[in-house]
Nucleic acid binder design. Structure first.
Lengths: 150, 150, 150, 150
DNA sequence: TTTT
DNA sequence: TTTT
């Protein structure tokens, strides 16, 4: 379709480590869940209610490798991407649907692993070579635009 | 959780009319699908490939009523909202998940029905009373912030 | 800095045609203003107030050429980009600042000129060759990522 | 205008503390600068180049008070708002323009001051009463929707 | 003026 | 399954 926009922007925490999948052609994807939540005060009961939402993030190629290297369970991250609902068939032959965020940009807002200080845009070689003197800090990293069909 | 963001922004076309559901307490929701798509040229075959993605939009209360009044199948709309994955049980007792966009802001980019020209923010009474002299144009409308749990 | 995001998203109408500037090295930029506005009802006077905001859009290279080809004064467009404030010196020697949106993605929501139907991502050659049978419709087009310092 | 969107989303660090301005009617605004930057590798010289951009943030009423309470120079924050260019006259009588981000949502991604733990949406009373046992952490806070014309 |  |  023309004149269309499909954009998701999330800030949340990883519920698990990045799981990598490597393909024969040399490509790879990384998957991880992130949680967002909002807290509000119920008008009825006047108590604080927290609502957590889970999102399945999928990153490709260089971006996936950078995420795997620097992100781990619990880290906070900014994710930008597209919504994609995959159709699959369960073991009973039923059509099933799963909605994912195909991540095409991300920024680390905290990292537990060795720091990716000075690491930056995934398109540049520097992104693969983080700072000599790692510090516990955050960094912006964008992923590549390769055409892996996932 | 704190420090979290859950935002979806879409521009797409309605795949169907707005379906309304009214609740006993006086609230209501409207549901409609919108399609986004992107077209790219395959690196392998060099042919143009169009990928359409469908999104389930849910709007509440006044916003739902405005959407129902002015939007119909085929119209183009800007949608802003939150991702929410609902869990439900199918007739065989399996857990099933459905991801929706809880819309909290929208802007009409084309309308087939009578125009909502001059209609605007849903929080203002004027939003309910579109222009006397309707024109085939677009309009920005935001929905209310009521606390309907859907 | 790391961990940073600079994103602007606009839907508005061109206040003027695209003005092109060509550079010796072969690069070019296109500039055009777009207007956004919101209408609200004054709490004091109860009258409808419309507030128009003007934004200076700057697009580069292939994206600029596509905008010039298909956009003209009055057209509606979705613009995504970064905020950049340029410093310049006026004829009296005063420091002056001008804030622009460096556009890195756009989608046509209406066009008056010949249609760019089927035109799409600027990175592909097809974006330069719109459909044989033009129709008055909209189309999504992204610009390139070249490194023109403007 | 109808069919319009004016949205800015930033993640950056405060370059200075929040400056408050109180009005006679009881309203107030807070102002602070935030820096975003991107680092890339120059194609010509192959050196790392960092580009910092400064943004003037304006927050109103309750949101301003929450920002003043919890944010200080150096803190990282997510800001969402609208672009607004103000016109003013300098001491020589020249027209001058200044572009600001009218913030209508924000999320703390780090805070140096006493923590706003459990503090949340500014519309709820709880947002004004942070946790008894402050911790150095982040929190999401949205501002109110009052109609202060700034 | 921030941050890494 | 995260985080506060």
């Amino acid at each position: 379709m023309s004149g269309s926009l499909n954009k998701v922007m999330l800030i949340g925490n990883l519920g698990d480590d990045v799981k990598m999948h490597y393909f024969e052609g040399g490509g790879c994807i990384g998957r991880f869940p992130i949680a967002t939540s909002e807290t509000y005060t119920s008008k009825q009961t006047n108590e604080r209610i927290t609502n957590t939402e889970w999102h399945n993030i999928v990153v490709r190629n260089k971006g996936a490798e950078i995420c795997e290297k620097y992100l781990s369970k619990g880290d906070k991250v900014y994710i930008e991407g597209r919504l994609k609902t995959r159709k699959w068939t369960d073991d009973k032959g039923n059509d099933r649907y799963s909605t994912e965020i195909q991540c095409n940009d991300f920024t680390f807002l905290s990292t537990k692993k060795e720091s990716a200080n000075n690491a930056s845009n995934a398109e540049s070689p520097a992104a693969q070579k983080p700072a000599e003197n790692p510090q516990p800090s955050s960094q912006p990293i964008a992923e590549d635009n390769d055409d892996l069909p996932f």
